[in-house]
Design a protein around this nucleic acid. Structure first.
Lengths: 105, 105
DNA sequence: CTTTAATATGTCATATTTGACATATTAAAA
DNA sequence: TTTTAATATGTCAAATATGACATATTAAAG
């Protein structure tokens, strides 16, 4: 993990240890954050590929446009459950999901 | 989705539509439930493979033995975030995670 | 430029998830 | 059996995620 990636995660609002101690994150926690970030980007790609507006996708998942925007921006208030629900609702297959997990951030 | 699978999901406490209308689940929601169920089973396998007790894994993820039991039993109160954190903390690689997603329930 | 559709950002009351705890059940020794 | 370690189940206050809303910003026409 280089300094630039650390800065970008902190800038995005990710909690880092108790206050701002980045070293407080276990490697599993860091991996999870990176995985969620990757899937957030992928969710945006997939929605566009399937020609859906954020508003349309929001209705499909029973949510709102603003929350879809938060999903795609990697907002730390968004759960992995919601990211995956958005992906599946946008037409992403399990195969594509699995491949996205293999891709690095 | 056959009747037996429906019954098993409902018996496990999964919310189904507004009250008990199973048909109220979208296919994306059903896929997500099945995915979480698969990963819950996989989490139990991985913990055992790596010779960890629930108590030990609980400490690694900053949680408790009882919640690890809930993760592994597919309890509906457990988030996908927590399931994946448990997997990664038990030593599961991204490759193994991706493969588990491809496996059917 | 102006209009209009799409996306982003901030806030908040409500809903869901959380770790912790007590306690029950099961499994493995001794 | 009895003891002891491991796992399961139920509950709850606190923490976190949620949809909804207002509004700002951006993009695409016209």
């Amino acid at each position: 993990m280089d300094i630039e990636k650390r800065k970008s995660l902190e800038a995005a609002g990710w909690k880092v240890g108790d206050a701002s101690d980045f070293l407080g994150l276990t490697s599993a926690e860091t991996e999870l954050v990176e995985l969620k970030t990757r899937l957030a980007l992928f969710a945006k790609e997939q929605r566009k590929t399937n020609q859906l507006s954020q508003e349309t996708l929001a209705h499909k998942i029973g949510s709102s446009q603003s929350r879809v925007a938060k999903i795609e921006s990697g907002d730390p208030s968004v759960s992995l459950d919601l990211i995956v629900k958005a992906l599946l609702s946008a037409g992403t297959t399990r195969q594509e999901l699995a491949q996205a997990i293999l891709d690095s951030v």
